[in-house]
């Protein structure tokens, strides 16, 4: 498979020169901090005194930490709902938006809007929508004769924040899928129409297989985002005293480090989260070899 033009001669030199700023950023910003976190996870460190060697005790402690287990469970539950939700809904929206209808660019803009709006501000608006006695959602339910639901109470909070997170991610997913959809040659559909295939057959036999590279990419990105999700969740589920009714791993990492003086333990949580994401990515790449169609 040909990936495009290869740099030749002097181009090669400029190729690296142009990459230097990014590489410096990656080396010191990402790689450096990853190594530092790895090192810190093997120590007990309260930030104020020099770190002391802890071996793998921080990792072992994770197995016996109900708060961390709860956070990990929440992160997995969240991801299990969020990733398929984002992929399916944004593909659906992209298919709808990939037509020559009047004002389609306005709709595209509207769907993309959450991606460029401050998460904190939109989370506050969602808090108002979800309000138990004063929220619009329950007002509408009451109009239909249904009882009010406490959307952000512990029982429903996870579902409610998943909905908001999916809503916030559809825009970006839609852009990815639109790019994938436009790359499908028109002739395939014309041929299918001539052969008498209906809209559904066309979707499942042409669109879906040919858009699998985009689905793969979007699933990958959504999974990474799901494991890092924090801002909407915290804004909507925070309690007094800095707690959250849906604590996720990133929240647990932050709180253990900055509130509880446990930088070593927090680093171990971060490393474990990274390892889980890497394993999941490995699984995705295995799936890619089996199912993703590259033309």
């Amino acid at each position: 498979m040909e990936y495009g033009l290869r740099p030749l001669g002097r181009e090669k030199f400029w190729f690296w020169v142009m990459l230097i700023p990014t590489l410096i950023g990656l080396t010191f910003g990402a790689l450096g901090s990853i190594l530092a976190t790895l090192g810190l996870s093997l120590t007990n460190w309260d930030l104020l005194r020099p770190p002391t060697w802890a071996g793998i005790s921080n990792y072992l402690a994770l197995f016996n930490n109900p708060a961390y287990f709860k956070a990990l469970t929440n992160t997995f539950k969240f991801s299990a709902m969020y990733v398929p939700g984002v992929v399916i809904i944004s593909l659906f929206v992209a298919v709808l938006m990939n037509r020559k209808i009047h004002g389609v660019s306005i709709f595209r803009t509207i769907y993309f809007l959450p991606a460029v709006t401050s998460a904190v501000a939109t989370a506050l608006v969602w808090n108002m929508i979800y309000g138990r006695d004063t929220g619009i959602l329950n007002y509408l339910l009451n109009l239909l004769g249904q009882p009010s639901i406490c959307w952000l109470c512990t029982k429903n909070a996870l579902m409610s924040v998943v909905v908001v997170n999916i809503w916030g991610a559809i825009g970006e997913g839609m852009i990815i899928f639109l790019a994938g959809l436009t790359a499908i040659p028109r002739e395939y559909y014309e041929a299918a129409t001539i052969d008498g295939a209906g809209t559904f057959d066309q979707f499942f036999s042409i669109t879906l297989p040919l858009v699998t590279p985009s689905i793969f990419f979007q699933t990958l990105i959504s999974t990474i985002n799901a494991f890092q999700a924090y801002d909407y969740i915290y804004m909507m589920t925070r309690q007094g005293q800095g707690d959250s009714s849906v604590p996720v791993v990133v929240f647990s990492i932050y709180r253990n480090a900055w509130n509880f003086f446990k930088y070593g333990g927090a680093s171990a949580q971060a490393i474990e989260l990274a390892v889980l994401v890497i394993l999941l990515m490995g699984f995705y790449f295995w799936l890619e070899r089996r199912y993703v169609v590259y033309e």
Binding site: G29, A30, S33, A36, T37, Q228, D231, V250, S267, A270
Partner: peptide, 15 residues
């Protein structure tokens, strides 16, 4: 995002 910030802060601290 928060994780990145956190890691950056760690590096800043070390530096």
């Amino acid at each position: 995002m928060k994780k990145t910030l956190f890691s950056l802060a760690m590096v800043a601290i070390l530096l």
